[in-house]
Structures are given as C-alpha cells and as structure tokens.
Design a protein around this nucleic acid. Sequence first.
DNA 1: CCTACCGATCGGTAGG
DNA 2: CCTACCGATCGGTAGG
Lengths: 237, 237
Amino acid sequence: MTMARILSPDVDAVDEAPDAPRRARGRPRKTADERDDGNRRLALITGAAKLFRSKGFDATSTRDIAAAVGMQSGSPFYHFESKGALLYAVMEEGMRSAIARQKLALDRAQTELSSVSKKEVPAQHARKVMTILVRNHFDILLGPGSDFIPVMLYESRSITELQRATLATLQSEYEAVWVPVLDALQASGQLKADVKLARLLIFGALNWSVQWYDLKKSASLDDLANAAMALFIQDKK
Amino acid sequence: MTMARILSPDVDAVDEAPDAPRRARGRPRKTADERDDGNRRLALITGAAKLFRSKGFDATSTRDIAAAVGMQSGSPFYHFESKGALLYAVMEEGMRSAIARQKLALDRAQTELSSVSKKEVPAQHARKVMTILVRNHFDILLGPGSDFIPVMLYESRSITELQRATLATLQSEYEAVWVPVLDALQASGQLKADVKLARLLIFGALNWSVQWYDLKKSASLDDLANAAMALFIQDKK
DNA sequence: CCTACCGATCGGTAGG
DNA sequence: CCTACCGATCGGTAGG
C-alpha cells in the first residue's frame, strides 16, 4: 500500500531531521507517535471517504468523522485546515491511487500479453488493453476500499475551482492512457462513434455504475466489464 | 405545459366548490389569487430545482429558495411541509413530465415513421425508435428547463426510502418503454451485450452527460444522440 | 490531540 | 404569505 507515503510526504521528510528540538535520542515511543500521526491522518481520510460517500459531503459533519476514527469533535482540525481540505485530500488520494493502480494493471497485462503473442494484430491488442482498462476502472469504482473515486465523482461541487483544476490535471493523466487505445479501436473499425464523445459516454456508463451496482446481486465485476466491452466495442471481422 | 395541473390537483378540485365559506360570488380577484397560489407553488418548485441542481440540496437553504421567488424566509413552509417535501416535489414533477414528454416524442415519431414505410424491417424500426428515445432523453437532461431530472438523479440520497420507492415506480414506467426496443435490437444482432446490463450502462452514459455537457461548446444534442447511437448500436448488415 | 466554547446558519413554527 | 423567533447543529478556534 503506497497510500501513506503518497498522502503525507512531509511527515517522512521531517522524520530524520538532524536537530529535532526536544526529542530524546533512541526513544522508540516518539517514533511510534510520529508514525501514528500519519496513521491518524490516513484514518481521517479513509473514514471521511466512507462517510462522504454514504451520506454526502454536506450531510457529513466533522463530528461524524471524528467519531468514526475515535477522536473528539475538534481534533480533525489538528490534521486538516478545514472540512473542505479533508474532502480534497480524499479526492487527490483517490486519483493518485487510481493512476497508480491503472499503471500496475497495464504493466501486469503487458508482460502477459507479450509472452503469449509477441506480434499480434493491433486491433486484437487494442481490444485486450481496453478490456484491462475497463475491468480495472470497475475495480476502482466498486471494488474493496472504493470510496475515494466515487466521492471525487459525486462531490466535486464542494471543492474550490483551484482544487478542481488540480484534480483535472490528474484526471487527464488517468484518461490519457485511454486515448490511444480508443483511437486504435476506431481505426480498426471496432469503435464507430466520435472518439472524444465516445470517451465521455463510456466513462459515464462506467461511473454511473456506482449508483446501481450491488455486490450482493448477481453480476460480478467481470460480468460488468464483459457487458461494457460487448456494448461499446464491436468485433473485428 | 401540463406542469401546473400535474403538480397540484387539489387546487383545481376546490376551485368550483359550491359552498366556499367567505368567497363572494363573481369576485374575479379571488379567482386570480387562487390561480396565483398554484403559480407560487410552481415557482417554488422551479426555483428550488434550479438551486438544487446548481448548489446541491444540502447547500441550498430554504431562505435561498424563498429569495429566488421573492418570498420571505418562512413562506415556503406555507406551501410545503418541509424542505424535503419540496425536493420530492421537484423529483416527482420531473418524472411525470419526463414520462409525458417521452410518450409525446414517441407518438410524434410513430405517425411520421408509419407514413413513410408502413411495413418496415423490424430491425430498422427498432433503431429509429431507439434514436428517438435517446435524443429525447438528452433533451430532458440537457434541454431548456432541464433541472428536474438532474436533481432527481443526483440528489436522491436526500429523500426518504418510501419516497424513493414511489419514484422507482415512475422510473420503471419510463424505462419500460426502452425494454422492448432493446430486446428487438439484440434479437437483430445490433446490440451484443446482456440487455439488462446494457440498459443500465446506456442510461449511465446518457445521465452522466449532465456532468460534462456544455451548451456553449461544440456538440449539439443531435451530435450527442448520434454519437451515443453509433457507440451502442451496431449497423444491421 | 482534548476541553470548552463561539458565532453563524439553518429548518421550522406561532401568530397574525 | 410576513414577522419574529427558537432550538439545534455546525465549522472552527483558543488554550492547554
């Protein structure tokens, strides 16, 4: 899990500072406390994400969040400037994690695919990559610990324009991976719609699943991914 | 516009009551006032819809709504029991209007289609009907006065379970029209995915457009509908 | 991190 | 529908 490192780079940086004021050397307690600091921050983000997703940002009080991680009502503000800063932290962490997971999924698939058929028909290759991307996206949206991205998708009204702009950069990074794949699919006749609109519509279809998907009911994430592929991408004949 | 009648059936019913207590016969002022009552109620719903869509339900105060229609802070509660009741009224009106508009669009298309080709290939027919449905759906989501359905789609967390259940009935009515069309498209090989999942994914793709569609930018609603059709529905060859 | 607290806002109501 | 108002809740802070 790279979450903690991504979340609070500053904490790690201070860890080995040469002239820490009143920190006795070799006292393991302090070190434990510091790591705890990061954990508390992370706990707040995780707890907030869960509540923001289920109740919405506005309907969640900072007291709710504090209680969820076993703090008193004022304590979250020791870690975050404001409720909005906490929301933004959830979203940014969600995007960084999503980008990392997408890279990982592609790398994993890359080695598998290339070992099977080094020089495959480009159209077939594009289809396989697209399947990986879709399946991974469903995992990010609906899999275990999937509160961050849904919060980002459905609560972006509550962050500032500047924060939205920063997030947009990360979102572009995430979507950039899809563009050449969609281009290739269109070039081979497997995707008929305008590529830009197709991308928006496809993400809509996937992202909306947050509204209706129920783990306990029938369809698995694999089923979902297969249905989405069958719907969007035509067979190359 | 059938909105007013749909919204407050009770008002119309009382209008001709034989023994209205202190209402002088033939005083046109009173009649005007009563019609105004309906207008105020409708104004509240319309104003609330606009605010709920742009700021969200929780972030909109009943004072905001009152101000938007030129009332004092407590006055909305003369027309609605609670803020939640106002939200629900927006949603229910949105669904009833959407169902009515969908029927209208289909009727209009029906006469056109049948005059051109009385006995058409079923596959071609299904495709045309689907195009009508998609285009109409975009109109409901993004066209003029399109605040009601977006509010219903994105604020349903804030209504009660019972209200959600009632809305679900209306939503089923709306979606029921799509089912045979999708079945026909699948039967003719123009739709490859599982029909139920396809329906959910397609509605997702359409509904998500609320998040990104910008009237001022490039694509028209026709463009959108065409792109969606090209993406989901394959050509019958 | 906790305790104690503040100012602001909010949904809603009584009484006209 | 307006005026005046209430109780509750909320984000946030000071001071330890």
